[in-house]
Simulated assay, not measured.
Amino acid sequence: MQRPFVKMNGAGNDFVVVNALELPFTPTAAQVRAIADRDSGQGCDQLIAIEPSDRTDAFMRVWNADGGAVETCGNALRCVGWLLMQSTGKDRVTIDTLGGPTTAWRVPGPGRVGSGGPEGPTTTAHVKVDMGAPRLDWTEIPLEEAMDTRGIELQVGPIDAPLLHTPGAVSMGNPHVVFFTDRQDDAFVSGSGSLIEHHPLFPEGVNVGFANVLAPDRIRLRVWERGAGLTRACGTGACAALVAAARRGLTGRSATVEVDGGTLAIDWDETTGHVFMTGPVEIEHTGTLTLKDAPG
């Protein structure tokens, strides 16, 4: 079976997006892994399907590169939001996910989005999304046992001299822990993140953030994503990092979050309690998928 797709990224976090509004798209886990494979497939952090919804403009379904379905993805919400706004002519759309509904709208930003030519993709447009209120109770992350989510009982390394300890825990529709550290090299993030991702404390697994607070309004962040590994950006991870930092008094309620693929503006609104994320979207290319089983 063949299906058209759009390859997009949000601050470097890249996606293969399939329009399933009229024709269902139900890949197997093996097919997802084959599409996501960067050597033999299209290569992506997540595979996205845009499906019909009775209560919103569309439903966004997300699979991680390992083939597993997950609740939501912040950067993908911006990309899907832009596609829906382009196709409907609206300036604001609502997208449902397994993690709940989200509103996206256009904001002023440099450049425009277009397919790449010989010189590569065009400059980016900007989209803002309302990620909703963070879920902060231990049952909402979820954790295996009751803990204060401002700083949970978890550490990496020797008991008397841990390398990482007492991360904040936040759900942005998917589970996150955020360590505050200036250790952000690839080996450290990958080694520690892969160790924590499937820790028994997290019955649904967890995304692992490594946040270095540079100023009260600036955070440098790297994220080991559950089921995807080390990615160039994680939108829900950026939201979680700002919330976790603000709860510890390390930042205010708004900050620029620097990720490998660019920057995201995160604002935890005091009036509504919702977290708003603004950042770039970019189309890399279009093409056609040929669905076939991958080994394993």
Rank of each mutant, 00 (worst) to 15 (best):
L143Q: 04
L143K: 02
E145Q: 07
E145W: 00
A146V: 09
A146Q: 12
M147F: 12
D148C: 12
T149F: 08
R150P: 08
Q155P: 10
Q155W: 15
G157A: 15
P158T: 09
D160T: 15
D160C: 14
A161K: 13
A161P: 08
L163P: 13
H165M: 10
V170I: 15
V170D: 13
V170Q: 12
M172Q: 09
M172Y: 08
H176W: 11
V177Q: 09
V177F: 14
V178L: 05
F180W: 11
F180R: 06
R183C: 09
R183W: 11
D185I: 05
D186P: 13
D186K: 11
V189W: 13
G191C: 10
G193Q: 13
G193P: 13
G193A: 14
S194C: 04
E197S: 07
H198M: 00
H199I: 04
H199N: 09
H199Q: 07
L201S: 02
F202H: 04
P203A: 07
G205D: 03
G205Y: 04
V206H: 01
G209M: 13
F210K: 01
N212Q: 09
P216H: 12
D217G: 11
R218F: 07
I219G: 11
V223D: 06
G227S: 05
A228D: 04
R232W: 11
R232K: 11
R232S: 10
T236P: 10
G237S: 07
A238R: 04
A241R: 13
A241Q: 07
L242Y: 11
A244F: 12
A245C: 11
A246W: 11
A246F: 09
A246V: 03
G249C: 02
G249N: 07
G249I: 02
G249W: 07
T251H: 10
A255D: 05
T256N: 01
V259Q: 00
V259S: 03
G261T: 00
G262P: 06
